[in-house]
């Protein structure tokens, strides 16, 4: 948890999946760390109002639902369940 204060984000590879966890107003939201448009890393993007913008082509996603909000993306990104156990942030990437 120490790595994820309010407003922070953290990415990690779990098995073969890049996951991005964001602390939005003290809520932890986990999504795919890879843009659905051209598979660029999303973790260099900036989070505003619960949405993340891909810094390369400008696609924007809702961190809660994964919905694509701006072109050039048209497909959502995956969202994952998150839980905190003993100060560890755990993400469930099973489908």
């Amino acid at each position: 948890m120490a790595d994820l204060p309010r407003g922070a984000k953290k990415h990690a590879k779990i098995d073969d999946t890049w996951v991005l966890v964001c602390n939005v107003n003290d809520r932890l939201l986990a999504v795919s760390g890879v843009c659905s448009h051209q598979a660029k890393p999303l973790w260099n993007g900036r989070v505003r109002g619960g949405k993340i913008t891909c810094p390369v082509h400008g696609a924007r996603f809702d961190l809660e639902t994964g919905e694509a909000l701006d072109l050039p993306a048209t497909k959502p990104i995956a969202t994952y369940a998150v839980r905190v156990a003993d100060d560890w942030v755990e993400v469930c990437v099973e489908s």
Binding site: T53, P55, V56, G58, P72
Partner: peptide, 17 residues
């Protein structure tokens, strides 16, 4: 277009899709 009309965000570069 380098960015979608009506969009906003943060960019490290303006890369054409």
């Amino acid at each position: 277009m380098l960015r979608a009309p009506g969009s906003e965000g943060y960019a490290t570069e303006f890369k054409c899709p």
